[in-house]
Structures are given as structure tokens and as C-alpha cells.
């Protein structure tokens, strides 16, 4: 048998990986990676939030600790903003492409195995984004309720931001509390598809582990929403901060 001549080497791209990140697969991979970063943040955020069940001292001390490390906080904020920007760019540019890939639609279309959450990622994503903007204006910047944001707690050395009182005052308003609860439902729906989807996009699919990842993703999504959503419910019920 005649030996096969070696194949010529592949041409080198001018900018490494540029054609990867502009391909549909590459953009989706960036969406998956940034999605996982945001998912990691949401878990850390929940851990911080749950300190409210330990009482004012624990939560306010944690808040003061974060405030004492501005470099870390700002690095995190810039990282999250970057991840969010790439997540949005990837999904929106792909969604526009996906819509234009079917210029004439079906008169009748039935889904076969797809889930509602997988088909509504843009809708749930935008609802969460709108909520995040409101949430930052509410608790971080203090625009929507400046009186709550100005609450301080006396300490041995002076005063510190009373996060506990701010949260309790905010969630005692049923409209505010329901915005937070609805946002958590949307987050759960988004992540119940999103978490398992990132694993597939990053190239892992296994007959045994993929079903576990799917169930695990949904479980974590629901636990996240229950953990966060329990706080406004507990405030409204008077379990946190007592009855108004």
C-alpha cells in the first residue's frame, strides 16, 4: 500500500480564535462561560443574603466587611459587568440571527421535547436584567427608597450602614416584595434550562451524567429561588424583623 502523503498544515488565522468567537458555536460558548460566571455570583449572593436569618449583627457585619475591601468589590463588579455584557452580546446577536434563519414562519408549529424554559430564555433573561437594574437602584444606589438606604446602626466605634433594617423596610412593602418574588421565579425558570445547557454547549454530554446534570440544574435553580424568595416572604410574615 502506497503511503499517504502528509496533509498540508491548516492556514494560520491572522487573529487567533477570532473566527471562533464570531462563529455560532463560539458565541454560544462565550454565553455559556459568562452564564456560569453569573451563576456563580448568584450562589455567592444567596450565601450572603441568608445571613439575614442570623440577625442584624451578622448581616451588617458582612456588609461592613465588603465595604472595607473596595478593591475586591470593584474588581467583582467590573468582572460581572464584563460577563453580563458578553452574555448579552452573545445571546442577542445569536437571537437576531436565529430569527432571520426562518424568514417565513409555520402556520402550525408544535414543540416535541423542548421545555418552556428553554424557549423563553430571552424573555426570562430580560426580566431578570430589568430586576437587577431595579435591585441595584433599590439597595445599592438607594434611588428608589432613599430613606431606607440612609438607615444606620450604632456600633462601638461609630455607625454603619444598617442593611438589615433596609431590607426589612423594603420588603414590608408588598409591591416591592412581590417584585423580588416574581424575579426569583424568573431566575429559577432561566437557570432550570441555563445550567444544564452550559454543560452541553461546553461539549459535555454523557448518557449517565447528562440526565443528572439536568436534574441538578433544576434543583439548584429552585433552591436558589426558594432561598432568595424566602426573605421577602419571611419579612412580610413578620418572621424577620418582627411585625411592623
Amino acid at each position: 500500500m502506497k503511503a499517504t502523503p502528509p496533509l498540508p498544515s491548516l492556514p494560520r488565522p491572522s487573529v487567533p480564535l477570532l473566527s471562533y468567537v464570531t462563529s455560532t458555536i463560539g458565541r454560544k460558548t462565550l454565553v455559556a462561560i459568562t452564564g456560569l460566571m453569573l451563576f456563580g455570583f448568584v450562589i455567592m449572593h444567596l450565601a450572603g443574603n441568608l445571613l439575614i436569618y442570623q440577625g442584624p449583627a451578622a448581616l451588617n457585619e458582612y456588609a461592613a466587611f465588603l465595604k472595607s475591601k473596595p478593591a475586591v468589590v470593584w474588581a467583582g463588579r467590573i468582572g460581572l459587568l464584563g460577563a453580563l455584557s458578553v452574555h448579552l452580546w452573545g445571546t442577542l446577536s445569536l437571537a437576531a440571527r436565529n430569527r432571520s434563519a426562518r424568514p417565513v414562519g409555520y402556520r402550525m408549529r408544535r414543540t416535541i421535547v423542548s421545555t418552556l424554559s428553554s424557549r423563553t430564555m430571552v424573555l426570562t433573561g430580560f426580566t431578570i436584567l430589568a430586576f437587577v437594574v431595579y435591585h441595584l437602584l433599590h439597595f445599592t444606589v438607594g434611588v428608589t427608597h432613599p430613606d431606607h438606604h440612609a438607615l444606620v446602626e450604632a456600633t462601638a466605634t461609630g455607625t454603619r450602614h444598617d442593611v438589615f433594617a433596609m431590607v426589612v423596610a423594603g420588603f414590608r412593602e408588598p409591591v416591592v416584595a412581590s417584585i423580588y418574588i416574581v424575579a426569583q421565579v424568573m431566575l429559577a425558570v432561566h437557570l432550570s434550562h441555563g445550567v444544564a445547557s452550559t454543560v452541553q454547549t461546553l461539549g459535555f454530554n454523557h448518557p449517565t451524567f447528562t440526565p443528572l446534570v439536568k436534574r441538578g440544574g433544576i434543583t439548584v435553580a429552585v433552591l436558589l429561588a426558594l432561598g432568595n424568595g424566602s426573605i421577602p416572604i419571611a419579612v412580610l410574615a413578620g418572621w424577620i424583623g418582627g411585625n411592623a
Partner: peptide, 12 residues
């Protein structure tokens, strides 16, 4: 063609 959003109706 559009991109994959892992809805899996293709498999179905």
C-alpha cells in the same frame, strides 16, 4: 442556519 439553543426539538 441559526445557532443551537439546546432546546432539543431536533432530536425529537
Amino acid at each position: 442556519f441559526g445557532g443551537c439553543t439546546n432546546t432539543y426539538d431536533c432530536e425529537g
